[in-house]
Computed example of a mutant assay.
Amino acid sequence: MANNVNTIEIRGFLHLAGLFKERGWTSPLNFVIPGEISGQQLLKMLDIPDDQVEAVFVNGKAQPLAYAVIKSGDRVALVPPGTPGPYRVYLGFVEL
């Protein structure tokens, strides 16, 4: 990862990996953020519609997009909708 203090690593899964490739982005993508941001702010900065991402892994921990908090140095993975039902609960995408 770059030495920039406000850099994060981002990966996209499934069709989001294709989007990264279409846009000429590396995987992982080293991306500079202005400071602590939400998952939704990150998507806005990347110009990815909210409905294209169901969950975000931040440093290996799955979180619903609405609750994700991303800070400098974090490793982020974007997960699109379509994960089978039981795994959505198991991975923490949704709560019962």
Rank of each mutant, 00 (worst) to 15 (best):
A2L: 10
N4I: 03
N6E: 13
T7M: 09
E9F: 07
E9I: 02
E9M: 11
R11W: 12
L14Q: 12
A17D: 11
G18T: 07
L19C: 06
K21F: 08
E22S: 07
R23E: 10
G24E: 07
G24Q: 07
V32H: 13
V32S: 14
I33D: 04
P34H: 06
G35A: 04
E36N: 12
S38P: 09
G39Q: 03
L43P: 05
L43T: 02
K44M: 08
K44V: 01
L46P: 07
L46K: 06
D47A: 10
D51I: 00
E54C: 01
E54T: 03
E54Y: 11
E54H: 10
F57H: 01
N59A: 03
G60Y: 01
K61V: 14
K61C: 09
Q63W: 09
P64E: 10
P64C: 07
A66S: 05
Y67R: 14
A68I: 00
V69K: 14
V69Y: 07
V69N: 10
D74F: 04
P81F: 07
G82C: 09
G82D: 13
T83Y: 12
P84Y: 08
P84M: 06
Y87F: 15
R88P: 10
Y90T: 09
Y90S: 10
F93P: 00
E95I: 00
E95K: 09
